[in-house]
C-alpha cells in the first residue's frame, strides 16, 4: 500500500489503479497518515523555507472557531474537481494561445517558442524530416479515401527535398 501511495503522489499510477488507491485512502486512516507523512517528507526534501506539520488538523481546529454559515454549499469533491478542471483548462489555454500566436506571427515564433520551451520545443511548421510519417499516415488514413489524391497534396510539397537523388 505504501508503495502505491508513493507512486500515486508521483503520478505514476494509471487511472484505474489510482482510483483504487484513492478509495483506500478515503477508507483507511492509516493510509491517510502515510499520505500526509509522505508529503511532509517530500516538503523536507524540497527544502522550503518553512515546514508545517499536520496542516490538516490545524486548519480543522481553526474552522471549528469560524462562524457557521447557513447556505447551500457544494461538496468538497465537486470543488476539488472544478479546481482540477480549471487548472487543466488554463494549461491548455496557454498551449492554445501560444499555438495561435505561432500561427499568426511566424516572425515571433522563435521568441515565443523559447518562452514555452517546456511545452513545445520545435518549430511550428512541419519539417521535411517528418514527411515520411505524414505519408505513412495518409496511406492508411480513412479520410484520405474521401479526399482522394488531394490528401497527398499536403505532403508532396516537401517531396523534392525528401528523397535524395
Amino acid at each position: 500500500m505504501k508503495n502505491k501511495i508513493s507512486a500515486l503522489m508521483d503520478g505514476e499510477l494509471f487511472a484505474d489503479e489510482a482510483n483504487h488507491v484513492i478509495a483506500e485512502l478515503k477508507s483507511q486512516s492509516s493510509a491517510q497518515q502515510d499520505w500526509q507523512i509522505y508529503h511532509l517528507i517530500g516538503d523536507v526534501l524540497r527544502q522550503p523555507e518553512a515546514i508545517t506539520r499536520e496542516v490538516g488538523s490545524a486548519v480543522h481546529e481553526r474552522l471549528q472557531l469560524e462562524a457557521v454559515i447557513l447556505a447551500p454549499q457544494r461538496s468538497m469533491t465537486e470543488k476539488a474537481r472544478n479546481i482540477a478542471l480549471s487548472a487543466a483548462a488554463s494549461v491548455m489555454a496557454v498551449v492554445a494561445v501560444s499555438w495561435m500566436a505561432m500561427q499568426a506571427t511566424p516572425n515571433k515564433s522563435a521568441q515565443l517558442a523559447a518562452q514555452t520551451s517546456a511545452l513545445t520545443r520545435a518549430s511550428f511548421v512541419l519539417k521535411p524530416q517528418v514527411n515520411a510519417y505524414l505519408l505513412a499516415h495518409q496511406e492508411l488514413s480513412p479520410s484520405s479515401d474521401v479526399q482522394g489524391g488531394s490528401a497527398f497534396i499536403r505532403t508532396t510539397n516537401y517531396s523534392n527535398e525528401d528523397v535524395a537523388p
Binding site: R121, A122, S123, K127, A136, L140, S141
Partner: peptide, 23 residues
C-alpha cells in the same frame, strides 16, 4: 484519423525531433 508511431531511438540528434508542428 491519427497515427501513432513507435520506434527505438536513433543515435543522431534526438533533440531536434521533439515538439509540435502543423500544416
Amino acid at each position: 484519423a491519427l497515427s501513432v508511431f513507435i520506434e527505438p531511438t536513433d543515435d543522431d540528434d534526438e533533440d531536434d525531433k521533439e515538439g509540435l508542428s502543423s500544416r
